[in-house]
Amino acid sequence: MNNWAAPVIAAALFVFLSPGLLFQLPGKHRPVDFLNMKTSVVSILLHAVIYGLLLILFLVVLNVHVDV
């Protein structure tokens, strides 16, 4: 059986953690902006760190498997 957890979780996190799509940390005018579709370098770096930490959490710590 193939383990599809890594590509599915990575793709979902990439979409949901795109800066400005759902939320942006830090925002342009507030600490958190929602649905503004604007980014900054700090926001991109912070979202990349959150993406990496969540990916490590799901794949390494929790050892999630999706067998197809």
Score class of each variant (00 low, 15 high):
Asn2His: 10
Asn2Thr: 14
Trp4Ile: 09
Ala5Tyr: 04
Ala5Trp: 02
Ala5Val: 04
Ala6Asn: 09
Ala6Thr: 13
Ala6Lys: 14
Ile9Pro: 02
Ala11Glu: 08
Ala11Phe: 11
Ala12His: 09
Ala12Pro: 04
Leu13Trp: 00
Val15Asp: 07
Val15Ser: 11
Phe16Pro: 00
Leu17Trp: 02
Pro19Lys: 00
Pro19Glu: 01
Leu22Thr: 05
Leu22Asn: 08
Gln24Asn: 13
Gln24Met: 10
Leu25Phe: 10
Pro26Phe: 12
Pro26Thr: 09
Gly27Ile: 03
Lys28Leu: 12
Lys28His: 12
Lys28Val: 10
His29Ser: 11
Arg30Lys: 15
Arg30Cys: 04
Pro31Arg: 13
Asp33Glu: 15
Phe34Val: 15
Asn36Thr: 13
Asn36Ile: 11
Lys38Thr: 12
Lys38Pro: 00
Thr39Tyr: 02
Val42Lys: 15
Val42Gln: 15
Val42His: 12
Ser43Arg: 04
His47Met: 02
Ile50Ala: 14
Tyr51His: 11
Leu53Val: 11
Leu54Val: 06
Leu55Glu: 02
Leu55Phe: 07
Leu55Arg: 05
Leu57Pro: 03
Leu57Val: 04
Phe58Gln: 00
Val60Gly: 04
Leu62Ile: 04
Asn63Ile: 01
Asn63Ala: 13
His65Thr: 13
His65Leu: 06
His65Trp: 03
Val66Arg: 03
Asp67Leu: 15
Val68Gln: 05
